[in-house]
């Protein structure tokens, strides 16, 4: 069998052309290996060979994104590679971003597997870890001899279409992809093992790491409620009958703002719930169970609160991505502030 063909991408610095003063060089391609390609070629062994090296200045790439990509792809294409390797870029920011962009473009345009390598704090790692296999490296090129074998090993697997193991095994940055597989021991046994270790104060590794949430300082308490405009926000999926904005019943990608001016209660002929995460029977009968308009309107009339905002904000909380929820919150909070809302009651089912 003939060797798999690999095209390697590096920047001006690793090509030995020069440092910052040469960062504006235009794309070029050379036959065979250049710089770190030598080590890469060795690590690929008998199965694959670096047939060409594409080179581009980091500044040129950054300043001429479209052109640089188009030119490089044309150059790379001629060699009909089976695998494309970019970098590794370690902690070089522009280089990392360039590696990410070109690797993603090559994958899309030439339909071949791609791989790169970066330090976790390289901005390119954050930008592309969801799209690409990025081998986790240390923060400087001194780590080359550790990084290259990992790049070569995983690159070969990708090129041969073999199954790729989890990040901790293969050494790439966590991509946030969950893969189903059959474990030789069932869940109950593993859970009990974990629990016993926890009770005994031994170390254990969770199978479901929780995302890290940021924190916000509490706002000061409200002094006089009778002077304050209050708004109701909910993740309970209450919408006008017919769901005019087509908010999803789970994994919402949007929120709605609906008028309640002049209404004393949220009646079931005008409102409904589309939330897919709880038994809707009760709320369908009485939407005030989630958006307590009836009692809040009374309290407004009694002067307990200064004013009730004349709309409520709503979405579906179930399965909704944290990123989406955050974006909704950012967007509608601006409106709330602009409309003079000084307190919010947010209800969740």
């Amino acid at each position: 069998m003939s060797k798999l063909k690999v095209v390697h991408y590096i920047n001006n610095f690793f090509a030995g052309i020069g440092g910052e003063e040469k960062a504006d060089i235009v794309p070029e391609i050379r036959e065979g290996v250049v710089g770190p390609g030598m080590a890469l070629n060795k690590a690929l062994g008998d199965e694959a060979e670096v047939v060409a090296t594409a080179i581009c200045g980091d500044s040129y790439f950054g300043e001429n994104l479209e052109e640089a990509q188009a030119t490089l792809i044309e150059m790379i294409k001629q060699y009909e590679p089976d695998l494309f390797v970019a970098g590794p870029a370690f902690n070089a920011g522009r280089y990392g971003v360039a590696c990410g962009i070109i690797a993603k473009a090559v994958e899309a345009e030439l339909n071949i597997p791609v791989i790169t390598g970066m330090y976790i704090e390289n901005p390119g790692a954050d930008m592309f870890k969801k799209d690409l296999h990025i081998i986790a490296t240390n923060n400087s090129a001194a780590d080359m001899r550790n990084a290259i074998p990992k790049v070569a090993k995983l690159g070969l697997k990708l090129a041969k279409g073999e199954e790729v193991g989890p990040p901790e095994e293969e050494g790439y940055h966590v991509r946030g992809i969950r893969v189903n597989y059959f474990h030789e021991r069932r869940g109950t046994e593993r859970a009990i093992d974990m629990l016993l270790k926890k009770i005994n104060g031994e170390e254990f590794v969770t199978e479901y790491p929780m995302p890290v949430f940021d924190r916000v300082e509490p706002q000061p308490a409200i002094k006089d409620m009778s002077k304050v405009k209050v708004a109701i926000v909910t993740s309970g999926g209450i919408v006008p009958q017919g769901n005019p904005d087509r908010i999803e019943s789970s994994s919402a990608t949007k929120y709605g703002i609906y008028d309640i001016s002049g209404m004393d209660s949220l009646t079931s002929d005008k409102f409904m719930t589309i939330h897919g995460g709880y038994d809707r029977a009760f709320v369908t009968e009485n939407p005030n169970l989630v958006v307590p308009l009836d009692v809040m309107r009374e309290m407004e009339k009694e002067g307990v609160i200064g004013e009730l905002c004349n709309y409520f904000v709503t979405t579906t909380g179930t399965g909704t991505a944290v990123g989406n929820a955050k974006a909704f919150g950012e967007a509608f909070s601006k409106k709330l502030v602009a409309d003079g809302v000084e307190a919010v009651i947010l209800t969740s089912t």
Binding site: D214, V216, Q219, F328
Partner: peptide, 12 residues
């Protein structure tokens, strides 16, 4: 969403 409301300066 709660945090974004609070971050925007509205007690929630």
């Amino acid at each position: 969403m709660v945090k974004e409301v609070e971050r925007a300066g509205i007690p929630v």
